[in-house]
Amino acid sequence: MAKVLVVTSGKGGVGKTTSTAAIGAELAQNGKRVAVVDFDVGLRNLDLVMGAERRVVYDLINVVQGDAKLTQALIRDKRVDTLHLLPASQTRDKDALTSDGVARVVGELREKFDWVVCDSPAGIERGAQLAMHHADVAVVVTNPEVSSVRDSDRIIGLLDSKTARAEKGERIDKHLLLTRYDPVRAARGEMLKVEDVLEILSIPLLGIIPESEEVLRASNLGTPVTLGSPASAPARAYRDAARRLLGETVDMQVFAEKRGILGKLFGRRVA
């Protein structure tokens, strides 16, 4: 049965789009039929991070308003056959998304795909609520930093009250994805530890994505980090996270970048 997953956070810039691309690509690498859907109408970026910005013809709004068929708007990934992108509109605003229209499109996506991964806009307003509304599973992306943790707490409250599942009295599976984590700084007491964030937010941990240069490199190239640098620390962490979403039990570990001698000498300061 198809699963709808929302990648959300409240706060902007914590890694929702990076995580959507990486998790989507990894689920597809596992043979699942995957659609990644950009809900950030007016500020679309998933197309860019996926390297498909020049292939966008129709978008989510066109499909919601009936101006294009879903199959016309879906862009098939050139690297992984089972991975598809439904881009957001860049020119329209969020009011163009109707809740009936979104419900219809998500329904159609459920029929065609095993996983529908929705990249939520930042904030807690209408756009973010529409992105989470039909979700069965939520990935709450959080940085080990006070404002991100606070916003995640707010989003968890919304997931428990404003989603279709919550309204029916059902449970929505919530997972914490801790991104931009630096184990060295956490050990020095300069950064919230994994356990601190888990204790405060009290939702299960899906993965720990280490702070890494590879993430920026991947977005520069328009390649999900799991496809572009599969051996890198963040790619391995995303791979484990995707396996956990698929129901596997995988030991949790903090992956660290391998550094050369120069990196060891200067890496910490520069990072």
Binding site: E145, V146, G189, E190
Partner: peptide, 11 residues
């Protein structure tokens, strides 16, 4: 260290 302060303020 500042992390324990962050943790306490958040709680």
């Amino acid at each position: 260290s500042s992390a324990p302060i962050a943790r306490e303020r958040l709680q």
